[in-house]
Design a protein around this nucleic acid. Structure first.
Lengths: 362, 362
DNA sequence: TATTGGTTCTGGACCGTTACGGTCACTCCA
DNA sequence: TGGAGTGACCGTAACGGTCCAGAACCAATA
C-alpha cells in the first residue's frame, strides 16, 4: 500500500525545477513571474493534486490568521435563541465579511471550564460578548497577545470596549414608571453570576454581580427609585439563570405570589418580559391596567407585543465590535464605543389603578 | 525605542537552560517532567510574559486546526434572519462544542466571487450549507484536502451528505392539496440560481435550477400534480431572489394578479408563506376559505400562525453535519444522513370553495 | 563600451512548535 | 554486581510556507 503524501510547495517546485519562492509567487504575486511560467506552475499543481499553499503554514509565516475569535460563554443554545444575541452575531459577521475575515466561534461552555479552546484558537483578535467578569475564558483571552474587544463588559486595561449606557437607559424606564405613579415594583433579572440562583436576590448579591450589565441595571434602578423615596431593600428582585420566556413567566409568578399588590414588573430583557406577559395573561391580570410590564432590548417580538422597553442597536453593537477589531492596529487603545438607546413606550405600561395608588396616599 | 519581541518556547527554554521539548511538555504533557521543573517553567513563562504555545505553529506541526469551517454562501444577513438557517447553525455549533472544535464562519458573499477566504481558512473540514451547485466557493472547498459534508446539496463523489427527502416531503403537501380538491395552484419558490430573477419561472429554468433543494421540490410538485391531471406548464411559478416575508407577499400578489382564481399557493419556505398570508389578508381573502397557503420548514412562527407546512429537523441537520465531520476520519466515505420530515396540517389549508371547484366540474 | 534599469528567478533564513527516538542517571532485585 | 526497568530530559528533524537580498539576464541609454 503506497500512501501518497500530499503535494507541497516544495515538491511542486522540485517537479518543475524552480524554486519554492517562484511557486509561492505563482499563487500570491502573479506579477513576479512570467505568465508562461505561472501557467506551467498552476497546471502542474493541478496535475499533482496540489491544493494551493497550506493556510496554516502561511499563517505561521505571515503572522496573520485571517479570522476573528468570538467568545460567548453563554450556553450556545441560549445564544442562538435570543434574538438580541443573534442580532449581535449578525453584526459581527457582517463586519468580518466586509473585511474578508473569518469568524471563529470559540467553544466555551460554562460547565466545562476548559480554557484550552481559547489557547488553540488561531485568530488575530477576540471579541468577548457578555460573559461574567470573572470568567476564566475571558482571563485566558486577555493573556493572548492579540487585540481584544469586550462588549457589554466593564472596562479593562488596554482593551477596546463596546456597549451602551445601561444606567441611563434603565433610568429612563424607572423615570417613566415613577412618573406614572408606580411605587410597588418588582424586578426580574438575568443571571448575576456563574452560580445558579433561581429566586430572590439579596442586595449583597446584586452588588456582587459578575455580569456587568445586570449589575449596572440593578444599581441604576436602585438609585432612581431611591430618589423617588422607594426603599430599594423592600423591592423584590428575582433572578433567573436561564434565559427564555418560561423563566420570565415563573419569575413573574414568584414575584406576584409574594406580593400581589405589585403594580409593575421591570424585566431586564424582553425575553423575560414576554414571559411575564404570558404569566399575567394566565392569571387574568390585564396589562397595563392591572399590571405594568417593561422589558429591555427592543427585539422584534417585543415590538409586536407592544412592550414598553429600551431599544438598543444590537446589530450595530456587533458591527462596531468587529470594526474595532479589524482596524485595531491603526489606533491607540483603548477605545470605547457607546451606542445610543431609545425608550420605546408601548402598551404594556400605564398608571397603576387607584386602588393600588391609595397605599401611598395621605 | 526597544520593541520587545514576544517570548517563544525557544527563548523560554534558553532562559531556563532546558530544551524546547521540555517547555513544550510543561504545557502539553505534564507527566513528562518533574512537578518542580514544570512549576519553574510556568513561573518563568509568567515572568517573561510568554502566553503559551502559539496555536498556529502548533496547528502546523500537529496537522490539526481544531476548527470546522462553515460555508454559507447566502448573504449573511439573510442567513441570520431565517429561523431555519439559525436552527441549522445552532445544531452545527452544538456538535462542535461537544467535541471541543471551533466553528469558523467563512466569509463568502455571493457578490464578491472571492474564493481566497476558502483557501485561507485554517480548518480540519468543511460544512457546506445550501449553496448553488455551481458555486465557486463550493468548488474551492472540494479542492481542499480535508473532509467535507454538504447539506441540502446534491450528492458528490467522496463527500458526506446530510439532507431530507425533499421530493417525498413536497409530495405529501401536493397530495394533501390534491385530496382537498385543489387544481388551480400557484407556486412561490426561493432563488433558483445565482442570477436574480424576481418573477415568473419557465419550466426550463426550473429544470436548470442550481439550488438542488428548490429544483427537487419543483420537480416533485410537477410529478405529483401531473398525476392528478394538472398540466404543469400551466402552473404559474414565481421566484424570489431574496428570502423574507416581503418577498413572499409580493410573490403572492404577482400570482393572484395574474390569476385571481387560484385556490392554493404552495410556498417552498415558511418565511415566504408567512408573507403570502399577509398579502391574502391585505386583499381581504380569507385563509383557508378563499385561499389555501402552505409553507415548508416548520419554523416556530409558522406553527404559531397555523400554517400547513412540512416540519424538518433543522437543528438535527446541523448537528448531524457536525458529527459527521468530527468523526470523518473513523469511517469510510461517503456517508449519507437523511432526516425525516413530518407533514403538519394547520389551519391554512382547506378544500377550495365550490365556486372555484366548478371550473373543473362537468 | 560601460552603465543603468527592469524583469525574472533563486537560496537561505525564518515563523514557533511538536514528533520521534534517543541518552543518562538512578533504583530495584536476584 | 550486573542487568533490566523507569523517570526525566534532550537533539534533531520536520511541519509548509513567505520574506528578503541579490543574481542572472536582457534591452535601452549615455
Amino acid at each position: 500500500m503506497h500512501v501518497r503524501r500530499p503535494a507541497t510547495l516544495a515538491s511542486l517546485a522540485a517537479e518543475l525545477g524552480v524554486s519554492r519562492t517562484t511557486v509561492s509567487n505563482a499563487y500570491n504575486r502573479p506579477d513576479q513571474l512570467s505568465p508562461e511560467l505561472r501557467r506551467r506552475v498552476l497546471e502542474t499543481a493541478r496535475r499533482l493534486g496540489y491544493p494551493g499553499p497550506d493556510p496554516v503554514a502561511r499563517s505561521l509565516r505571515t503572522r496573520k490568521a485571517g479570522a476573528v475569535g468570538l467568545l460567548l460563554t453563554e450556553n450556545l443554545s441560549y445564544a442562538f435563541r435570543d434574538p438580541a444575541a443573534i442580532g449581535f452575531l449578525e453584526g459581527v459577521a457582517l463586519a468580518c465579511e466586509d473585511s474578508g475575515q473569518g469568524l471563529l466561534l470559540v467553544p466555551a461552555s460554562p460547565e466545562r471550564e476548559d480554557v484550552a479552546a481559547v489557547h488553540r484558537a488561531g485568530v488575530d483578535g477576540f471579541i468577548v460578548y457578555s460573559v461574567p467578569d470573572d470568567d476564566p475564558h475571558l482571563a485566558a483571552v486577555l493573556e493572548r497577545p492579540v487585540p481584544t474587544v469586550v462588549v457589554d463588559q466593564p472596562e479593562l486595561d488596554n482593551v477596546d470596549r463596546v456597549g451602551i449606557d445601561d444606567r441611563a437607559a434603565v433610568t429612563q424606564i424607572a423615570q417613566h414608571l415613577i412618573e406614572l405613579g408606580h411605587r410597588r415594583i418588582g424586578v426580574v433579572c438575568m443571571r448575576l453570576a456563574r452560580d445558579r440562583n433561581d429566586g430572590f436576590v439579596t442586595v449583597d448579591r446584586q452588588h456582587a454581580a459578575h455580569f456587568h450589565v445586570q449589575r449596572a441595571r440593578l444599581e441604576a434602578l436602585a438609585t432612581a427609585f431611591a430618589a423617588a423615596n422607594v426603599d430599594w431593600t423592600t423591592v423584590p428582585v428575582v433572578e433567573r439563570f436561564d434565559h427564555n420566556t418560561a423563566c420570565g413567566s415563573s419569575a413573574a409568578a414568584q414575584l406576584l405570589d409574594r406580593d400581589p399588590h405589585l403594580t409593575a414588573l421591570i424585566c431586564t430583557s424582553d425575553i423575560l418580559a414576554l414571559g411575564a406577559l404570558a404569566e399575567a395573561r394566565r392569571r387574568g391580570l390585564r396589562v397595563p391596567q392591572d399590571l405594568t410590564i417593561t422589558g429591555f432590548d427592543g427585539i422584534p417580538e417585543a415590538e409586536r407585543a407592544g412592550l414598553t422597553t429600551v431599544r438598543q442597536p444590537v446589530l450595530e453593537k456587533g458591527r462596531a465590535a468587529g470594526k474595532l477589531l479589524v482596524n485595531a492596529a491603526d489606533h491607540t487603545r483603548p477605545r470605547t464605543v457607546t451606542l445610543s438607546t431609545e425608550l420605546v413606550i408601548g402598551t404594556s405600561s400605564a398608571a397603576p389603578r387607584m386602588s393600588e395608588e391609595r397605599w401611598f396616599g395621605p
